[in-house]
Amino acid sequence: METIFDLQNVSHSYLDKFEALKDINLTMTAGEQITIIGANGSGKSTLLLILDALIYATSGEVYAFGNPVTEERFNALEDNEFARYFRTKVGFVFQNPDVQLFSSTVFDEIAFGPLQLGLPREDVVKRTEEVMAMLALSNIRDRAPHTLSGGERKKVCIGSILSINPDVLLLDEPTGGLDPRTQLWLTELLQDLAKAGKTIITATHDMNIVEQISTRSIVFGEDHTIRADCSSTEVMNDQELLLSANLIHEHQHWHGELLHKHPHPSEGEHHHEQVAHHVR
């Protein structure tokens, strides 16, 4: 499998003062579904920003698609072939929808990406229409994004990335602020995209979705280092690990896959298995 991201001894600190990532070593290959989990402030968003070449490692090396990722290579205003290739391949849904919505209508917002990447007009219109239909946004196509509800905004953000059709999707807290039905819809969407062969990297602290949307989990500790990097099932079954990363509280019992077993609807009906609660 092709290696997409390769991080070697990467650290990042904001303003040379606030440490956000420490000594990260990672490789991610095409077609993987990975969740990045960790407590608040452990560095998840920072890692995604580095993967999307929006900020750069303060030390260590980052490679994307076999090319080194450095500020000089990306910040040039001149024609920049690798940067353009990278932007078509990688899409990023930000944690805060407000920073991602800057167009004056929903339609323009979703059409922005494909237009920047130089697709022909008809294709842009077609893609935008189809994405809006898929996300049920067609009825608000002419609304200004800042007048939408939190959940609608999030949907528009996701749509604005899907219209680029990137092979690699970076999502930062995609389920934040979504109602349960929309959350379910989103996990199903991510499962479909995974089946289509996309690489999906999601930062989250929603333990309910980890196993549904990923096969591999990377756990960050509060010291901004990687605590564990293994299969999602293993991670979710490791009480000690989740406790030490401050992801769960000791009064909370995590029962791994038993708590929320949730087959995809096409494979059968939803059914939740009842679990007897232990009392410590």
Partner: peptide, 22 residues
């Protein structure tokens, strides 16, 4: 700071300073 992040979000979607419109 926010305006910085908005700029990042635009860059992430392929904006390179040349405005392209319908």
């Amino acid at each position: 700071d926010t305006s910085d992040k908005v700029h990042q979000a635009m860059i992430s979607r392929g904006f390179d300073g040349d405005v392209k419109l319908m």
